[in-house]
Measured scan of single mutants.
Amino acid sequence: MTEYKLVVVGAGGVGKSALTIQLIQNHFVDEYDPTIEDSYRKQVVIDGETCLLDILDTAGQEEYSAMRDQYMRTGEGFLCVFAINNTKSFEDIHHYREQIKRVKDSEDVPMVLVGNKCDLPSRTVDTKQAQDLARSYGIPFIETSAKTRQGVDDAFYTLVREIRKHKEKMSKDGKKKKKKSKTKCVIM
């Protein structure tokens, strides 16, 4: 069974824990209790493949930012979460993405942009803004509501699919490099 290491990042209060708990335990946590770091595991079937999701729910508070490099190193894919009623959390996505790329030393890291709290009427981040940002990053965008469960499975499952595509691409690139290195030079 394939294991996928997913990391949920975003500013404090955007609903990272609520999304994760909704996926794992099928219930909505409405009281806000700032996370330092929590880890969850769940076995699911995605596109006919049974897999184990190892999900790291991270601290959004700035005082825990020193811990970010460590979990970013171990993560295979990242859910970059903002709240649709919090423009600052949307603007912060850029910083999370840049930090992930720096730590992973790669421009090509599996990510999904997630606009959470889409059940709320007080939207300050337009869907088109988020779609445009995701398009500019070359990553999928999904709106979710941890409260109603809308888009929750889709967000995590899409990230797994992005990781699969990335692994497939990397193995193809690896095979191309191996083929090239088999060419021999004969000096007579």
Score class of each variant (00 low, 15 high):
Phe28Thr: 03
His27Leu: 15
Ser17Arg: 01
Pro34Gly: 03
Ile46Asp: 09
Ala11Glu: 10
Ser39Thr: 15
Val44Asp: 11
Asp54Tyr: 04
Gly48Ser: 09
Tyr32Pro: 05
Leu23Gly: 15
Val14Leu: 13
Leu53Gln: 06
Thr20Trp: 00
Lys16His: 01
Leu23Ala: 15
Tyr64Glu: 15
Gln25Arg: 10
Thr58Asn: 04
Phe28Asn: 02
Gly15Ala: 00
Thr2Met: 14
Ala59Val: 03
Thr20Leu: 08
Val8Gly: 02
Pro34Leu: 04
Gln61Asp: 14
Ala18Ile: 05
Asp57Gln: 00
Ala11Tyr: 06
Tyr64Leu: 10
Gln22Gly: 12
Asp33Arg: 02
Ala18Val: 06
Glu49Leu: 04
Glu62Phe: 08
Asp54Val: 03
Val45Lys: 13
Gly12Asn: 09
Leu53Ser: 07
Glu49Arg: 11
Val7Glu: 03
Thr35Arg: 01
Asp38His: 01
Asp54Gly: 04
Val29Cys: 13
Ala59Arg: 06
Ala11Gly: 08
Gly60Cys: 04
Lys16Arg: 02
Val45Pro: 11
His27Trp: 14
Phe28Gly: 02
Tyr32Arg: 03
Arg41Glu: 03
Gln61Lys: 13
Gly13Asn: 13
Asp38Glu: 02
Tyr40Met: 02
Tyr32Glu: 05
Ile21Asn: 06
Glu37Val: 03
Gly13Glu: 14
Gly13Leu: 10
Val44Ser: 12
Thr20Pro: 03
Cys51Thr: 09
Tyr40Ile: 02
Gln61Leu: 10
Glu3Arg: 06
Val29Pro: 11
Tyr32Val: 06
Ala59Asp: 06
Thr58Gln: 04
Glu63Phe: 04
Ile55Asp: 01
Asp47Thr: 06
Thr50Met: 10
Val14Lys: 07
Glu63Lys: 09
Leu52Pro: 14
Val7Gln: 07
Leu6Trp: 04
Tyr32Ser: 04
Asp57Pro: 01
Thr35Val: 01
Cys51Tyr: 13
Asp54Leu: 03
Ala18Glu: 02
Val8Trp: 02
Glu31Asn: 08
Cys51Met: 13
Asp33Ala: 05
Glu31His: 07
Gln22Phe: 05
Gly12Met: 10
Gln43Cys: 09
Thr2Ile: 08
Val9Asp: 03
Lys16Trp: 00
Lys16Tyr: 00
Leu53Pro: 06
Val14Ser: 12
Gly13His: 11
Gly13Gln: 11
Gln43Pro: 13
Thr2Cys: 13
Asn26Phe: 05
Cys51His: 13
Val9Gln: 04
Cys51Glu: 11
Leu23Arg: 15
Gln25Tyr: 06
Gly60Ile: 02
Gly48His: 09
Tyr40Ser: 01
Pro34Phe: 05
Gln25Asn: 15
Ile24Trp: 05
Glu49Thr: 11
Tyr40Asn: 00
Thr58Leu: 09
Cys51Gln: 12
Glu63Thr: 08
His27Ala: 15
Thr20Met: 05
Lys16Ala: 04
Lys42Ile: 10
Thr2Ala: 13
Asp57Tyr: 00
Asp57Ala: 01
Leu6Ser: 02
Glu37Gln: 03
Ile36Thr: 04
Ile55Asn: 07
Ala11Cys: 13
Ile36Gly: 01
Thr20Gln: 05
Ser17Gln: 00
Ile24Glu: 07
His27Tyr: 15
Thr50Asn: 13
Asp57Thr: 01
Thr58Ala: 06
Glu31Asp: 12
Glu49Ser: 11
Val45Met: 14
Val45Tyr: 08
Arg41Pro: 02
Tyr40Ala: 01
Ile55Tyr: 03
Lys5Trp: 01
Val45Ala: 12
Phe28Ser: 03
Ser39His: 03
Leu23Glu: 15
Gln43Arg: 13
Gly15Trp: 00
Ile21Trp: 11
Val9Lys: 03
Ala18Met: 06
Asp54Met: 03
Glu31Ala: 08
Lys16Gln: 02
Tyr4Phe: 15
Cys51Pro: 13
Gln61Val: 12
Tyr40Phe: 10
